[in-house]
Nucleic acid binder design. Structure first.
Lengths: 115, 115
DNA sequence: TCATATAGGGATAAATTATTCCCCTATTGC
DNA sequence: GCAATAGGGGAATAATTTATCCCTATATGA
């Protein structure tokens, strides 16, 4: 596993946010889990642009940060379900605000992104 | 300059957010500019963990995405001031919500981040 | 018998992001 | 003349993140 070589700075709130939310797919994972897409394969289908590998890695980090929990069913083929923790749920309104802002400004955003 | 090799996907609102806000210091830059720290050297002092170089790069991107504008005063030594555009200002409440969430959960966040 | 579904992880390669170092501008103050 | 100031960017390198590929296991259905 990758060992980070620099220590993170945790001065202000925005630094803390960075540590738990700064990952390309994390916000989307939280969002889709909130929408009841709980299984890894479902999440993968919702986010086809990410590799299965990186989704696993980011799910592990979200779990480590106590935003989601993982339930493993002892069946074959394997079944796993993720859920938001109570802590994770408190983040949903904030993510919703982000998404709403983007939806409101969708046209403009597309414009500026594509030069 | 760096040329990206993969094309971004812009399917949903959260993808669009990613394109304009996914940069380690961007949210902090917007926040401090909103707090009237307009000059590059001030921003550097507010965010000492980032190199001057990367702040310049991210400021350029924010400008390209029309979230901030740059005013260059033709004086020596040079003077530059950044300001939020009207578009950029619409993002402030969302960033405030992020910051507020982090402040409310500061202790817990510190705990989970440091294992 | 063999492909499919389901979940996950190691090793490695590639892409991206961020840091470091160095150079340029022109004025003011010592 | 020399240092400091303020802003910026190129080049090289380091750090980090993400993607690719391959391998594990077992039940089900064709």
């Amino acid at each position: 596993m990758y060992e980070r070589k620099t220590i993170p700075n945790l001065n202000c709130g925005l630094d803390l946010i960075g540590e738990v939310l700064y990952g390309k797919w994390k916000v989307r994972l939280l969002w889709f889990i909130n929408e009841n897409h709980k299984r890894p394969s479902e999440l993968q289908r919702k986010i086809p642009d990410a590799s299965r590998r990186v989704l696993n890695i980011q799910l592990n980090e979200l779990e480590k940060h106590e935003l989601i929990t993982k339930k493993i069913y002892p069946v074959v083929p394997p079944k796993v379900e993720y859920s938001l923790t109570e802590f994770g749920k408190t983040l949903i309104p904030v993510i919703a605000a982000l998404g709403q802002w983007a939806d409101e400004h969708e046209e403009r955003l597309r414009g500026v992104i594509l030069q």
